[in-house]
Design a binder for these strands. Structure first.
Lengths: 154, 154
DNA sequence: GTAGAACCTCAACTTAAGTTGAGGTCAACG
DNA sequence: CGTTGACCTCAACTTAAGTTGAGGTTCTAC
C-alpha cells in the first residue's frame, strides 16, 4: 500500500524546543526541566540542539493535564514510564492514564466536598467560637484522642 | 454577678508551646514559624519562653482548616488580620472567614469537576491519541490561539 | 558573511511551608 | 544540686517545579 504523502515542511518535521514551547504553551526552561526529569526525551542535531518528535506535544499536554489534576511530576513520570516501550502509545494506553488520574481527581473532589460540608456545618452552627460546638465538631480545641488532627481527616 | 470559678490548673492557665503543639497537632517548629509569619502571637515569661492564651488553639485550628481548603498562609494571615482588634472574635467573625473560604473551596471543587468532565470525555472518546478528537477537545496538540494554555482553563 | 534570533550548559535563585541541627538557657523533680 | 526534658535563637536544609542569568554556540536570513 502506498503511504500517504506528507509535506516535509509540516507533518514530517521534527520540532525545536522553541516550537514545542510555542505549541504547548510551556516555557523552554520547563521543557529542559522535564527532560532532566525524564518526562520527555529529545535527540540532538549536529549542532547539539534538541529535536523533538511531534509526539512530544501529546506528552506535554498529558503532563499539563495531570498537573492540573494535582499529580506531582514524579508520579506523572512513573505513569508515562508505564507506557509501552517499543510502539507508540495507543488510545487505550492514554485512556488508562486518564482513568487513573480521573480516579485520583474524584477522590480529591470527594475530600474537598466533605471538607465543604464540615465548613457549612460550622457556618450554620456558629462554631469556631461557640463552646458547645466542640462536642460534635472538628474545630475542637481539645485533641481528645491524642496529638494530631483526627476529626478533620476525611 | 459572680464570675464562674475557674480552676487555675486548667482553664485559667496559659499554654506553653509544647502544650499548644500537643493539643493542636502542629509541630513546635511550625508554631514558631507561624509566629514569625504573624499568624499567631505569644508573650514571654520571665525566662523568655512563649506563653499562649488558649485562644491560640482556635486560631491554629482555623489555620489548619484553611490550609486544607488550599489557602496559602499569607492569605490566611490576611484573613486573620481582618479579625477585630480589641475584642475576641465572635461567632460571626469566624463565620465570615468560614464563608469566604467555603466559597473558595466551592470554586476549586467546580474547577476540578470541570476538569473531571473533560477527562471523562477524553476517556470516552479515546482521545489523547485519536486525531479527530483534537477538533473538539482540550488535549489539542496545536496551540491554535497562540502560545499558552487556553482550552484547559476553566 | 555577518547580524541577530534561537539554542546550549550550568549554577544559582525563587516560593511555600516548614524541618533539622547546633549551641545555649530554663524549669521541675528527686 | 544536679540532671533531664522543654525551651530559646539562628542558620541552613528540604521539596517541588521551575526561572533567571552568565557565558558561549548555532542557525537563519539578508
Amino acid at each position: 500500500m502506498a503511504m500517504k504523502r506528507i509535506d516535509p515542511e509540516d507533518w514530517g518535521k521534527e520540532l525545536t524546543v522553541g516550537e514545542v514551547a510555542r505549541r504547548s504553551g510551556v516555557a523552554v526552561s520547563a521543557l529542559h526541566f522535564y527532560e532532566t526529569r525524564g518526562l520527555i526525551r529529545s535527540h540532538r542535531n549536529r549542532g547539539n540542539q534538541r529535536r523533538y518528535p511531534r509526539e512530544v506535544l501529546r506528552r506535554v499536554a498529558v503532563i499539563k493535564v495531570a498537573q492540573r489534576v494535582g499529580v506531582p511530576l514524579a508520579s506523572i513520570k512513573a505513569a508515562l514510564d508505564s507506557l509501552p516501550d517499543g510502539r507508540s502509545p495507543t488510545a487505550a494506553d492514554w485512556a488508562r492514564l486518564s482513568r487513573i488520574w480521573r480516579d485520583e481527581l474524584d477522590a480529591r473532589i470527594g475530600q474537598l466536598q466533605r471538607l465543604r460540608d464540615q465548613l457549612d456545618g460550622c457556618i450554620g452552627c456558629g462554631c469556631l467560637s461557640i463552646k458547645a460546638c466542640r462536642l460534635r465538631n472538628p474545630w475542637d480545641e481539645l485533641a481528645e484522642h491524642g496529638p494530631g488532627a483526627h476529626l478533620l481527616e476525611p
